[in-house]
Design a protein around this nucleic acid. Structure first.
Lengths: 211, 211
DNA sequence: GCTTTTATACCGACCAGTCGGTACAAATCT
DNA sequence: AGATTTGTACCGACTGGTCGGTATAAAAGC
């Protein structure tokens, strides 16, 4: 049926199981090396079901990117960092939250969209676009808080909210790559620390905690 | 013969042609989607030659990572940013140089090692290790200049040279991913700008030019 | 009882790797 | 010097297996 499903809509169990399996396997093996049989086996679903729910492997990847966007969107929406009144504290809270969820194996905390992008950006435009949307939609939500923080506090060097939000995405994506290189979440956390320090310096609030 | 060849040693023409082809094709299609026939066709070489020079596809990828490390090492060693006497100017010059070479298609300026890493970090340890070595060897050369800059100028917030050098690698890798998402080098350049601003702020030399 | 979902068998294309062989140059042996 | 062996680079048809996708029928759910 291939529903677009930008939101976390209810869906048939086989479809959800396949998407949940894709979240894990795609990050472990990438797109090309992931076989349809892999996904079916991990989901505990028959191959016929796969092609009933998805037009093909590429369609599954597109749906996986949208599913990733929806599930992470829900995770971040429910996170506690939205509470502070000062938007700058929300931005710093976001960064702290990103650091806090860097735990376990890289395959567990890295980004499905970023992983897919690397492999498919030239060969599978539909997947690329879905992944790009996932990343930039996420950036846009951060951008809103950065924008408000600039309005309240000002910022150094003519930095724009959009640019800084995208830079944050870049730092995170790059941190995932370093973590994959070493197998260790700590190196990713270190880059997130640098990002936090940078934001603090831009807003002339170095290091110190807030409310 | 599968020589390790950390340096840019002379090698049989077929081997070099295959490695040069790999630099392009691996960045375009990734590891799994690149076929041996693809590489042979692009290199203008017969399949038998491929397996004469490499034990298999995985061995080619390892050799490609080492070749990438050697060729980029030579490129950066020959770059003009080493001239300044002040190590901080060399560090900033390095960042400017990284920005200057962001031109054309993402497949042309992105990193072979980072691309391979994403796909192979869990499934092909030999490739992962070769890519990690390429990235961290590169970081180590930057780290030397950062270390000297800290010795001369001091740095804010107890930042270490090793950590900052690795953060620079993360920013660059992440910038490549954003560029792949949009197909545009400009978004990558923007992240490199942020990195430069961050380093300037850390060394209390915001924006201004130097010598 | 009819639609939706699942299970299994199967197909054709493709792909990593093999194998037998040629070309040629540098040693080695008369 | 000439013949012979050895080692290396290179070639391309072939193969065994894999993978995306299809066909079809049973089972489940309404």
């Amino acid at each position: 049926m291939n529903a677009p499903s930008a939101t976390l809509a209810p869906m048939p169990p086989a479809r959800r199981k396949l998407l949940d399996a894709a979240m894990i396997i795609l990050r472990k093996k990438g797109y090309a090396a992931t076989t349809v049989d892999d996904l079916c086996a991990a989901a505990g679903v028959a191959k016929g079901s796969f092609f009933h729910h998805f037009d093909g492997k590429e369609a599954l990847a597109v749906a996986a990117a949208e599913y990733w966007s929806a599930t992470t969107g829900a995770l971040f929406a429910a996170a506690p960092y939205h509470a502070p009144d000062d938007p700058l504290d929300r931005v710093l809270g976001y960064i702290d939250f990103r650091k806090a969820i860097l735990m376990g194996e890289p395959a567990a905390f890295s980004c499905v969209a970023g992983t897919l992008l690397q492999e498919t950006f030239e060969t599978h435009p539909a997947i690329r676009d879905a992944c790009a949307a996932a990343i930039f939609d996420h950036a846009a939500r951060l951008e809103a808080d950065i924008d408000a923080a600039i309005a309240r506090h000002g910022i150094a060097g003519g930095v724009t909210a959009a640019s800084l939000a995208r830079h944050a995405m870049a730092v995170l994506q790059g941190a995932f790559i370093l973590a994959k290189a070493t197998g260790d979440a700590a190196i990713a956390a270190s880059s997130v620390d640098h990002l936090r320090r940078y934001v603090g310096l831009l807003f002339s609030r170095p290091e110190g905690a807030s409310p």
